[in-house]
Amino acid sequence: MSGSTRTSASLNLGERLRKAREARGLSLRKLAEVMGEKPSYSGVISRWETGDRLAKAEDVAKIVEALELDADEAAELTEFASASAAGSKSSWLAVTLPERRQQLNALLAAEATATKVTHVAPLLIPGVLQTADVIRAIMVDGGVPDDEIDERVYTRLGRRDLITRKNPAQLDVLLEETAVRRVVGSREIQADQLRYLLELAELPNVDIRLVPYSAGWTRAATGDFILLESDQASPLVSLDLHGSGLMLHARDDVALYRRVAAEVREKAISPADTAEFIARVIIELEEEK
């Protein structure tokens, strides 16, 4: 819906509220009754669950009490409500680990409803296109604790649903040459990654274009970002910073990153030329073994 007031934060929180209510077998009217409200209040709850309105922390606290959630569930939902309030603002900077986790949940929710995703990736192939071996190598080199690696690999692989689900999003990826030449894990792992990239590029909803070194400087050099657009929620920009994450919802911010993506696209080579370029890099990797 054009101009929707829904955000990834309100959609994600709404889904969690709905699941918590349905898990206890309560209708909207029954929940309103248990909360001590009039039957018409079920309409307010419904708008929270659909993401048309963002429930405030105090509203969520009342729902938690009415549903008689256990301590862990109550704490998780209350914490998520606070994070969602932050995520509904024009900008959301997540610094602490709990905030980063909540922001990742918001990003996953945005991907679940996205109709178009533009990813400008100057240094590394985007996670949604990475192989399990590359993901694991990044986790190991990044110092992720051994007992967390499998779960993180599984989570990142799950993001591939963005382009393979029944109604997939259109994914436009703008890579700089460094992203395909950087050897992650080993030459063999990188060659497998590039072959997989060519395979995904065959999907009708995936457009991969490369900016070669010969194109000179582009604004992609200022950093990686993801622009997510949806028929159900307002657009957002996600930036992964060192030790923190930033989400932008303001119209001017989104417009700026749209322009940056358009400028980078002008210097990129065509999808066909990109495929040929990647194929040559694969040969180089295999010859260096």
Rank of each mutant, 00 (worst) to 15 (best):
E79F: 00
V44Y: 11
N167I: 07
L11G: 12
L239P: 06
D252Y: 01
A71H: 10
A110D: 14
F80A: 00
N105H: 04
V237P: 14
E286K: 03
G243F: 07
L11R: 15
A86E: 15
V128M: 02
S90E: 14
R187G: 07
T118H: 14
K30A: 14
R24L: 06
G185C: 12
V180R: 04
V281T: 11
P204E: 11
A20E: 13
L129G: 00
A250M: 09
L69S: 10
L26I: 03
P271C: 01
P39N: 02
V144S: 13
A137G: 07
S84E: 04
R100M: 09
L210N: 06
L200D: 02
P212W: 03
K19L: 11
T131E: 10
D224N: 07
A169Y: 09
L129V: 01
S42A: 12
P145D: 13
L194R: 13
L97F: 07
E65Q: 15
S90Q: 10
I278T: 03
A106Y: 12
V44T: 15
G142W: 01
V134Y: 14
D146H: 13
D150E: 14
A221L: 11
R280Q: 15
L13D: 03
A83P: 02
G25D: 06
G142C: 04
A250N: 15
G245V: 05
K89V: 01
V117A: 11
A23V: 01
I45F: 04
A23E: 09
W48T: 05
A215M: 03
W48A: 05
W217Q: 10
T222E: 12
L26K: 15
A106V: 10
L162E: 04
L124K: 03
V153T: 07
L203W: 08
A83Y: 02
G51H: 05
D141I: 00
T218Q: 04
L157V: 07
E15L: 05
S4P: 13
H242I: 12
L203V: 06
G87D: 01
S46F: 11
H242D: 14
L77Y: 15
D141R: 12
V134Q: 08
L77T: 15
T5N: 15
A220H: 00
E286D: 08
Q102T: 01
L11W: 12
L239F: 00
E287Q: 13
T118K: 14
L248Y: 02
A137D: 06
S27K: 13
L123K: 02
A262V: 00
D147L: 06
S91F: 11
E266S: 12
F277W: 11
K166L: 02
A191S: 11
E202W: 02
L241D: 15
E111A: 01
K116G: 03
E111F: 05
A268R: 01
D147V: 04
